[in-house]
Write a protein that binds this DNA or RNA. Structure first.
Lengths: 117, 117
DNA sequence: CAGAATCCTTTACGATACTG
DNA sequence: CAGTATCGTAAAGGATTCTG
């Protein structure tokens, strides 16, 4: 393990945000608890398998909590943990950057390979 | 393309930071132009193929510029573009988050699967 | 509805060897 | 030293099907 990687602490946070759906799901949960079905509709285009995988991963990292209500019928909800909530700040920082510089990157891409792809 | 993904603008920035070496290389270039060989030693553990791939990708996105000096012997240097420089802020935001909450995530992981892995 | 199981494609990344 | 070429691995992600 090269020392530089350790010095560049960002990797530890990036590993959490890199998987496509991690950030999206974190963001989708920012306003409070949400049921899987609602989550699926909200983010759109995510398969049940990937949804479960991602949620499990987030749970294992202590960013999301799973709550099971023993009602009739049984209900499941996911919500951000206090730790997961702290990740919203850097996530927003990246989002704000994209909002401001996204066009410039897209323009550079077009110039580079002749199209947005 | 689900509209939520577009709403969650962070993805556009995350796509730039997600590949393992993107952020590391951007960070390694923060102090100024650097030659490939120096870059390799600085980040450590990156193969020539991956270094080139990553640099080309960064270049295609307008984040890094390649300069070739026609000296004897020819010299090549890479440096951040003004656009690439703006990405350092959100990258640092993620790094700062990791520095502060990294331990909590590691602890959650241990609790989840019995070991740091 | 929640989510597990199976199959398949893509791609980041690594190790090596080679060329200018 | 800069960069390319080839081969191989692992993991993310997508589609579909099935069960409680």
């Amino acid at each position: 393990m090269p020392e530089f990687l350790a010095d560049c602490r960002a990797r530890q946070g990036l590993d959490l945000l890199a998987p496509t759906w991690n950030g999206v799901l974190l963001w989708a949960l920012r306003d409070g608890p949400c049921r899987p079905y609602t989550l699926r509709r909200r983010v759109g285009g995510i398969s049940p398998k990937v949804l479960t995988e991602t949620l499990r991963r987030l749970e294992a990292h202590g960013l999301v909590a799973r709550r099971r209500y023993r009602e009739a019928p049984p209900r499941v909800e996911y919500e951000l943990t206090p730790l997961g909530r702290t990740l919203l700040a850097p996530l927003k920082a990246v989002g704000d950057w994209a909002a401001e510089h996204g066009d410039a990157v897209a323009a550079a891409r077009e110039g580079a390979d002749g199209g947005p792809g």
